[in-house]
Design a protein around this nucleic acid. Sequence first.
DNA 1: ATAATAGTGTCTGTCAGACAATATCTA
DNA 2: TAGATATTGTCTGACAGACACTATTAT
Lengths: 223, 223
Amino acid sequence: MAVAVDLVVLTVRDDRLQVLTVTRGIPPQRGAAALPGGFVLPDEDLHDAAIRELHEETGLDPAPGHLEQLRTYGAPDRDPRMRVVSVAWLFLGPDLPLPRAGSDAAAAAWTPLADLRRGDGLAFDHDRILADGIERARAKLEYTPLAAAFCDQEFTVSQLRHVYEVVWDTRLDPRNFHRKVTSTPGFVVDTGRTESSGRGRPAALYRRGDLELLHPPLLRERP
Amino acid sequence: MAVAVDLVVLTVRDDRLQVLTVTRGIPPQRGAAALPGGFVLPDEDLHDAAIRELHEETGLDPAPGHLEQLRTYGAPDRDPRMRVVSVAWLFLGPDLPLPRAGSDAAAAAWTPLADLRRGDGLAFDHDRILADGIERARAKLEYTPLAAAFCDQEFTVSQLRHVYEVVWDTRLDPRNFHRKVTSTPGFVVDTGRTESSGRGRPAALYRRGDLELLHPPLLRERP
DNA sequence: ATAATAGTGTCTGTCAGACAATATCTA
DNA sequence: TAGATATTGTCTGACAGACACTATTAT
């Protein structure tokens, strides 16, 4: 029985939630879009395999983002070649440029979610894995400060709010959001510097705090 | 590479959170306590494997409880015999009697968590898996109505509160808890019947509602 | 000055914690 | 009757949503 890792790599880019996809170079489903991933080596830890595949297939480093195990998929027919059990991982990172063509990761590209829904979707059961990853990311923004994983090391409150708005596909009141973020100890740390982003009053720059869990959480609206 | 499933089976029994353990009948660690589990069959879905092992090793049915995937463990040295990647599952169920000795599940027994901490612990990395399962269960009581999975089909508000108190190892105000549970639409459904449990006013009997997520959640106290 | 964005202050409704009071049972 | 448990109701403080208002920049 083969064991693989698959990666749901998300970022906020051009005001949209985007996922990193690769174009399959070998059958089955050659030419189709898929999540990056690959087989776990005989003496390799699952977490190490996820980091290795992230780097090999996308050129990204785990350092500036957040990597966590998502869920394991093992339907007997999920891969037509053989029985493959795949441990899926979720990576949230800032909008980093991908390595240029010519490298191993030449086939990797950011894809807006809306484009996937219009197109043919992903190979194998990757649509399902992606949906689970997105739901996990949305839920985690509620009760952890993980939205900062989508930002650069220093960011403004507006940029952080923008992450929430894009991931949740909603609008948040800038004033209430500002109060919530800055009044929760450990959520963000003021660097003392400011950033002038064109028009308007310059915004204070923050770094991630050491808080692990938001109490109380920042809840999405429900229907 | 071998793929297995391991089960964290929890119940509330004798006012304590208890876990189902089996005594290993074969080396390595023969005679030691371990979580129930076994290898996934070549054409078997992971979820089916979890249900099968639950029944084979413990005699329990998934029906009256709640089964969900927990996490996958795959450190290269977690099993000294060979490389085994294990998909762990979490099962929460009412306090059911285990099959008597003589059946396949003769080695299965309920074990209070406190006893495990005093003793030698579990085989392999099962202490870690168990800890992850307990933390998942504790967290899920906050934002889902899953506490009812620990109760019989019909239960009183006090019994439900007792589940929270045991799993979280805390005390909750009976009046505020009663208000929260009965005023959240879909959390529980009044059956119209009552149960007289000895002394005191008889309590109304409820069944699980169809709510999937508690909004707002029922948060534990934090340090 | 005007527009735009950042940030503060205030009001209000909701909800959880504390706890008084009432209801209904057993001993 | 007293004691125990269930259930309802009230008060209060914390906090989120709505939104007026001030602050600081570019044009």
